[in-house]
Design a protein around this nucleic acid. Structure first.
Length: 879
RNA sequence: GCGGACAUGGCGGAAUUGGUAGACGCAAGGGACUUAAAAUCCCUCGGCCUUAGAGCUGUCCGGGUUCAAGUCCCGGUGUCCGCACCA
């Protein structure tokens, strides 16, 4: 069966070993054990079934697979599942374009992609597979929704929402990027709709402060989440107002700079502020102004260009006690209703935006503090004098000129705290913490999503579905002829009875945001067929996920939602922890060169022939011979045609080569450039290992690895030292996910084993050390190239599967060198090397150093001032 | 504007966290084997040099600390990323 030819044939061997693993059910995990210390959960972000696996997926899953196989060898009970994030717009788009049911399209894609993934030889427990569009899964999600409803974690409100006019659905704030829909790219409009919201903002403080404990997360992701949650500390207080409509006698404002209150020269309110709305009804000019504000788009460009617009309402504001007085109240387009109170005071002396506004509307500019050492005089300063606002950096000390006369110095932060105290002492206002994070709107006006399990009853209002009625299934017979939500116009699906009164009622036709589906799937994998969302007895032995791996693009949305969901599930008793992912790793993308012809059309790498190298490289279109330009290296994308399919690589070189190449060279968190020569190089290495093993197999038939206590010849000992050293460093590097370094160590090990010549004169102890060395080698690269490893393992005479073997036992003693080489510096410059026993004392090293010819020559009889010996590192002679 | 990260040969990147800079790989050049090609094996591969040496120089630029700096400190430059009318 195994081929004994000089070349390894992955096309033949890979499926054979995949079958062997399957037959032994090697990767099926028993989650019911009660020894949670030996459990290890490694998970890669599950894919959307778009149709084909792309190379980026492959890199992601290979990383997880290396960890899974390594941890399994280290004796852990490893859980490594796979599923499908299967609801979403593309299925509906396909339905509209090709007249195919979204479900059919999705499940066909899943079948294709599962086959593609299986070619990679991943150690996945496929018995746990599910798709989020399986009714069995979304039934449990509906169950969670009802629990959330009971625990007041979800609510309904009418609000202005982001409406994507192309996808014809609502988007969460997180899904609006530069004012455009994250999927469609269409400019988002504002609409008033009644929507379901998850109370994520109630958890702002916890979500923020717990980030500090996520030590195995990249600092970058934690920082992005910190910024997104957006903590700010300030003061909230009321202005009294005069001249306003009945019922309005004060304006509540929020500020992070209460220390500038004495420089306030106007008050501004949002066009959506209740007071603005009241004024709008009485005064057509206000109505016109507000309409003008709404017209301005929310895109970045629009905001950049937009002028600061203000409308003087004629109302005057003052702080009780007369500290500031007679401030004009403006409606201003730059004030957001959903941050703080929707109203501010303006201090043009110390804020750029307020300054712009003041200049435009000719308002007073007053400064409150100035840089230390400034000799400006203590007086009101008009716009022409204070051309720029003075905005000190946070820790900068400033000198206050109001209210105190004379020196009054403190840093910005001290001043803010001081001002909050000032407000509180006078009972004018209070310190308030604000967050940027808004509640998560989850209603989507789409078909292909999880139905929200509630009904609308004329008599009883909004009534939750009964848990025994779950799942509320999506109807199969749907019509995609018209845009919008097909559930809305389905002839019968909406009609139901009210669970409360039994009368006629209508189903909710909105479905849940697909980010809900991915917010708890990791928990479901532990007991994927349970009759409840989780099995509390089992789940806490497996969560949190020990190592989660995925793209940085999910740094905010998915990872923040999952953290919220875990907390919400804890409140509902489905599990008992707050943080779902203990270790997080964000992997880089696979990128490729781009090619473009004269007309600007992108070309597939397969259509291009390359010539020359370095700066004289040229590319030609194979079909026409026309020279085409070589563009930048970019993320693989269909639009730029610079994609390479995983099958293509598997067909040419086998899965192991692809796996090896994608983890070589580039550190896993950085992008890796796919190049043909790199892939060929990886394949050459596969064959090189095969030759090494194949060469030695005959000689090793009657030999076994040397036992620990046996003394070996120097040659044999060197091999044994290299084996144990390599074993250690590869293990450490895999633990750190430094796959590129592990791979370099494997290369070095192969280089050194290849230097051992096999001849008739090879002694038995060398052969014995080689026996151990080759076993170690195969086990070390097995997590990376599992098929080749099995083939080598079997050729080396083992009856077992290497995938089921424990990691070899490392011995510190055997890794110990008999002599080490110390670099010798004189005045910090390397001049010589010293070969010496590793346990030589510093005195012995000093003495040996001074005996070196080079050192003697340089010293020329002089006595060195100092000799620095760093054990096992370096010697430096100072003279 | 605010916040953050990074900068090492022709290229991707190592460097035990202050201790031999350039591991390992890719590309390139030379040689061996072969009728030839592929495959394989061996050698060279940061720069400089009328002194080819255990020589000088060299990790974005300019300073500093240290016996010793790619690594630490101060000041610049450049690139990339996140957020952004957030009061």
């Amino acid at each position: 069966m195994s081929n004994s030819s000089a070349r390894y044939n992955p096309q033949e061997a890979e499926p054979r070993w995949q079958r062997a693993w399957d037959e032994q059910k090697l990767f099926e995990t028993d989650t019911s054990n009660d020894d949670s210390n030996s459990n290890y959960y490694v998970l890669e972000m599950f894919p959307y079934p778009s149709g084909r696996i792309h190379i980026g997926h492959t890199r992601n899953y290979t990383m997880g697979d290396v960890v899974a196989r390594y941890k399994r060898a280290r004796g852990y009970n490893v859980l490594h599942p796979m599923g499908w994030d299967a609801f979403g717009m593309p299925a509906e788009n396909a339905a509209m374009q090709n007249n195919v049911h979204p479900g059919e399209w999705t499940y066909q894609n899943i079948d294709t992609m599962r086959e593609q993934l299986k070619l990679m030889g991943l150690s996945i427990d496929w018995t746990r597979e599910f798709a989020t569009c399986d009714p069995e899964y979304y039934a449990q999600q509906q169950h969670l929704f009802l629990d959330f409803l009971e625990n007041d974690l979800v609510y309904r409100k009418s609000s202005k929402v982001n409406w994507d006019p192309v996808d014809m659905t609502v988007l969460a704030n997180e899904q609006v990027i530069d004012g455009r829909g994250w999927r469609s790219g269409a400019e988002v409009e504002q609409r008033e709709l009644t929507q379901w919201f998850f109370r994520i903002s109630d958890f702002s403080e916890d979500l923020l402060s717990s980030l500090d404990e996520l030590e195995e997360w990249p600092e970058k992701v934690r920082l992005m989440q910190r910024n997104w949650i957006g903590h700010s500390r300030g003061a909230q207080f009321d202005f009294e107002i005069t001249g306003a409509p009945d019922g309005f006698d004060r304006i509540d404002v929020y500020t992070t700079r209460p220390d500038t209150i004495l420089g306030a020269t106007f008050v501004g309110i949002s066009p959506d502020h209740p007071l603005a709305k009241a004024l709008e009804e009485k005064d057509p000019r206000v109505k016109d102004f507000i309409a003008a504000c709404r017209k301005i788009g929310t895109t970045e460009e629009a905001i950049e260009k937009a002028d600061k617009l203000g409308f003087d309402t004629g109302i005057k504001a003052q702080l009780p006690g007369g500290f500031v007085d007679n401030l004009p109240v403006y409606i201003a387009n730059f004030i957001l209703m959903d941050y703080g109170t929707g109203a501010i005071f303006g201090c043009p002396g110390h804020d750029q935006r307020d300054h712009d506004f003041a200049v435009k509307y000719d308002l007073q500019i007053i400064d409150v503090f100035r840089p230390l050492g400034s000799d400006r005089d203590d007086s009101f300063i008009m716009p022409e004098i204070l051309k720029e606002p003075y905005v000190p950096i946070k820790d900068e000390k400033v000198e206050f000129i109001r209210p105190a006369r004379g020196p009054n110095q403190m840093t910005g932060q001290e001043a803010i705290n001081h001002a909050i105290d000032w407000f509180e002492e006078r009972e004018l206002g209070e310190g308030v913490t604000n967050y940027r994070l808004r509640d998560w709107g989850i209603s989507r006006q789409r078909y292909w999503g999880c139905p929200i399990p509630v009904v609308h009853c004329e008599k009883c209002g909004v009534v939750p579905a009964m848990k025994e009625d779950l799942p509320i299934r999506l109807p199969e017979d749907i019509d995609f002829e018209k845009p919008g939500n097909p559930l809305d116009r389905h002839p019968t699906w909406r009609q139901t009875t009210c669970p409360s009164c039994g009368g006629e009622a209508e189903r909710e036709t909105d479905t849940m945001d697909t980010f809900v589906d991915s917010s708890w799937y990791f928990a479901r994998f532990v007991t994927p067929r349970a009759n409840n969302p989780t099995e509390p007895a089992t789940i806490d032995r497996w969560l949190p996920v020990d190592q989660y791996i995925g793209g940085i693009e999910h740094a905010i949305l998915h990872l923040l939602y999952s953290r919220f969901f875990t907390r919400a599930m804890q409140i509902c008793g489905h599990l008992d922890l707050k943080e779902p992912f203990k270790g997080l790793f964000t992997q880089g993308m696979v990128v490729h060169e781009t090619y473009q012809d004269k007309a600007g059309n992108w070309l597939d790498p397969k259509e291009v022939r390359l010539e020359g190298h370095d700066s004289s490289r040229k590319a030609y279109k194979i079909e026409t011979g026309e020279e085409v330009s070589i563009g930048s290296i970019e993320k693989m994308s269909k639009s730029k045609k610079n994609t390479i399919g995983p099958e293509e690589i598997t067909r040419n070189f086998g899965a192991d080569t692809a796996r090896w190449f994608m983890l070589s060279d580039s550190p896993p968190d950085r992008d890796v450039e796919w190049t043909d020569s790199g892939a060929e190089g990886a394949h050459r290495f596969v064959q090189r290992i095969w030759r090494l093993v194949d060469t030695w197999k005959i000689r090793l038939i009657d030999v076994s690895a040397p036992s620990q206590d046996i003394k070996l010849s120097d040659d044999a000992n060197k091999i044994r030292q290299a084996s144990h050293k390599t074993l250690k460093s590869i293990g450490e590097d895999i633990e750190k996910l430094a796959f590129n370094r592990s791979i370099a160590r494997v290369h070095e090990f192969v280089n050194s084993l290849s230097n051992v010549s096999m001849s008739d004169r090879t002694t038995d102890d060398v052969a014995s050390a080689m026996c151990e060395g080759l076993d170690f080698l195969v086990q070390c690269f097995a997590p990376f190239m599992p098929h080749l490893a099995e083939e080598c393992w079997s050729v080396l005479g083992h009856k077992s599967l290497v995938a089921a073997e424990p990691w070899p036992i490392f011995s510190e003693n055997l890794a110990q060198d008999t002599a080490i080489i110390l670099p010798v510096q004189v005045n910090g410059k390397k001049r010589a090397e010293l070969s010496i026993s590793p346990d030589a004392s510093n005195d012995e090293i000093e003495a040996a150093t001074l005996e070196l010819d080079v050192v003697k020559k340089i010293l020329d009889g002089a006595v060195p001032r100092k000799i620095i010996v760093v054990p096992k590192r370096i010697v430096n002679v100072v003279c």
